[in-house]
Design a protein around this nucleic acid. Sequence first.
DNA 1: CACGTGCATGAGTTT
DNA 2: AACTCATGCACGTGT
Length: 955
Amino acid sequence: MGSRICMNVLCGTTNTHEWKKGWPLRSGGFAHLCFKCGAAYEKLVYCDKFHAGETGWRDCSLCRKPLHCGCIVSKSLYECLDYGGVGCISCAKSSQPRVIQNDDVLNGFGGLKISNYSDRQSTVVQNGAFSNTVDEGKLLQLCKIMEANESNLLPQPQRGDINVSLVQKKQEEVINHNGEVGLGFSSTTQPSIGSLTFSKSDNGRTMIEDMNKSSSQPSLSMTLGSPSATPSFVLPFPGGLVDGREQSKTPSSFQQGHGREQSMTPSFQQGLVDGREQSKTPLSFQQGLVDGREQSKTPSSFQQGLVDGREQSKTPSSFQQGQKSRPILPKPLKPAVTMSSETNKGGFPNVRVARPPAEGRGKNQLLPRYWPRITDQELQKLSGDLNSTIVPLFEKVLSASDAGRIGRLVLPKACAEAYFPPISQSEGLPIRIQDVKGNEWMFQFRFWPNNNSRMYVLEGVTPCIQSMQLQAGDTVTFSRIDPGGRLVMGFRKASKSLDMQDPQTSMLPNGSTPGETSCPSVVENPATGSGHLGLFQTNTGSKDPHLHALSEHLHLTDGDMSLHKNDYHGHRTSEDLLQQPVSNSDKKRARNIGPKSKRLLMHSEDVLELRLTWEEAQDLLRPPPSVKPSIVTIEDHEFEEYDEPPVFGKRSLFTASSSERQEQWAQCDDCSKWRRLPADVLLPPKWTCSENSWDTSRRSCSAPEEMSQKDLDSLLRASKDLKKRRIIENCTEAQEHEPSGLDALASAAILGDNVVDSGEQSVGATTRHPRHRPGCTCIVCIQPPSGKGKHKPTCTCNVCLTVRRRFKTLMMRKKKRQSEREAENAQKDNNNHKDESEINGTSTEVGLHMNHSSENGGCQSRIEADVAESSSAGQIDLNCEPNPYVQASGLTLLRLADAASQPLNNYMKESCLTNMMCEPQAGIGSSLLTQATDESERRLSAVAPWDCEGRGDAD
DNA sequence: CACGTGCATGAGTTT
DNA sequence: AACTCATGCACGTGT
């Protein structure tokens, strides 16, 4: 019988001395069952001469055609599937070798058949009833799903590959055998199947909750849970539990409230342990679960338990809570992350399975993020001859604090209270923990009062951490060796890939991985002593499924976990990869990204987009209408100060006509027609044709558009190109000139934090702003209270002094940067020329096109640019007299902006960089280009005057 | 001044 | 809303 784990996947009992013969296996032999399951199996009679209890399958699990008479005793008319269910003769033959003859009751998992075999209330619902009440289409779906499930029944090596592929693709599959079984059916073979979610109420009734035909990611999610403790009967999915009559209304997906707490051994291991037999149920489970994650939106208990905890966070964790049912949470996965089967060269499933700790589930709701994870591979290797049992307790990704010099490792409260000795005094207790090398360490296990709670820490871990060469992002695992109850501490180094994006979530380090498997585990330990511990060192879940999958892959070959690799597998194919030096920045980033830093993980593209949006918004800003600014002089420069926030003006496009005269095109808010306007017009946020005082012939919406659709398209296309280019340039610029210190502050002040917060930068050590103290002159603290800020030019308050000082500093820095940029530009001249020529080419094309059209429609060539781009050389251009938004007085925005930019202009002149600041609209292409390239600079100079006090150091 | 200790804070997560 | 926990930080002690 190969394995010591009961083959009833819902049982998983180990270490029993009595084994019973179970159902025949396709691969030969019979499944072995623990005594209890075996006894139940023997008693299982579906039909005493034909269909007495109505508990057998009546339909082919594959094609759904009714079996001969529905009596499973009639063995010549059907074949039992290893993983459960019954196949009619034709299906069974066609699906060979997946189907086996079976006289007995079926066991395993049938596509539609799920049994809550929790002890007494094992519920075997005839699928006949199911089929009676479920429409044919849905049944077909189920069949297909099941078919997909069968893909697990391939010959071992093949299956293994598939399994790995699937699992890695999905990241982690979730198997909760302990009375909670997750079934999902992969979409691999039937990609277009809908999803099914079953629910079974606590009273043992089963229901179909949802059948989502439209779902593109098929899945079958099931949850079995039983409040009872021990199963007295083991029949994984006989007959089918779905009782159509009772199908209803339950919101949860296949919840049976079946949460056996006792048996810790993952029956699922069976498949992993016994290669010959593993092709059955467990694998189909895995596969199913994996896919299951993709679908169900229902708060099913499985989600919590079987799928990665972090992703399941919204659902109750039955595993931890014992009695609760467990949802399957289909989590959308990034398709890109399919791991190739190559990664599983060993032919074994190397899925790292998060297993709810064997103990403590009842007393503490251990978050899945702390579940120890172990790969199938590891399990398989571990489940050999064992002299002792390893009970993985929990794991934790080291935070910066944990790995820091303080020497304090914060323990998850639930874990500490569940697995460490109870302490009533804050001082705690000394605790001895063995590491993977066999060293014993003494830590102080203690707690701090914290908000009416406790915060548990292990103190004095620095030597241990250092000896293991751990750092933030790495994972430590706590396990227990039985008998003896010794605590052992394993570790797992974070892989590079994880470091970069998945600091557990980061997202690795922390976010829950969708699809965590959760088998309670008492793992048999082949190797006594220290080394085995490494087997439990796992990575933590990744928020990002594919990353997690990658991590799984990488972890398998992690050299740090030398034990199972060296001793058993010799899997080192990726070791080199893992050992590749990780850049400091990557490490740093990862280290600083805690599990909770999701917020900081804005994708750089998103940031770019955001920044661009912000910049565009800057372009659209107009001084508040009908508000007269007050004038503030700082460093001999006058600034307009507004009591009201700026308003957004109307976006328009700018073109350069053949006569080099710039034109502006704006769209009527009523008729959406584009009207040509003088370039220096600044439009209000809402503008219609009726306000077109510059072209009386087109003062009405009924007037035809001047520009043909073609021209318009070209114009918009050019605009898009410009935008793209701008993004690239901004990106490059950001990389080349990463602002720091005051620069960053200044940038933030001018363009908003997005400038500083590029993708990479967004990953900071902390999201918190340093606490402000009296006298703090940071950009935040120096800002006057909202709506205030009226200081006299001679004011010597702290704010004004700081503003002036920073203003100076910034100007100097800006000058320096410009000089550097100039030098770089000189170097990159060729490249720039190339780029420009490309842009010019585009522009020329547009221009030619426009010219052509102008012949017809009088429209000149156009170049798109943003609002307020009609600047003339060397001037900050907030655009001429924007009627009525520009004051006729001398204190215009233009003038103020000019004043504001004066120092910069001076610097520019000194540095012969004037042409960089702004450029006359010499030609179409150049105009386009310069508008793009100079924009940011101009914006720097043209910092909103109403902001000049608060952000006075910005310019 | 450096380091250690214990509590406080607040972002993120879970209920 | 409550809770968890990573980390900041004040304060005490040691060098």
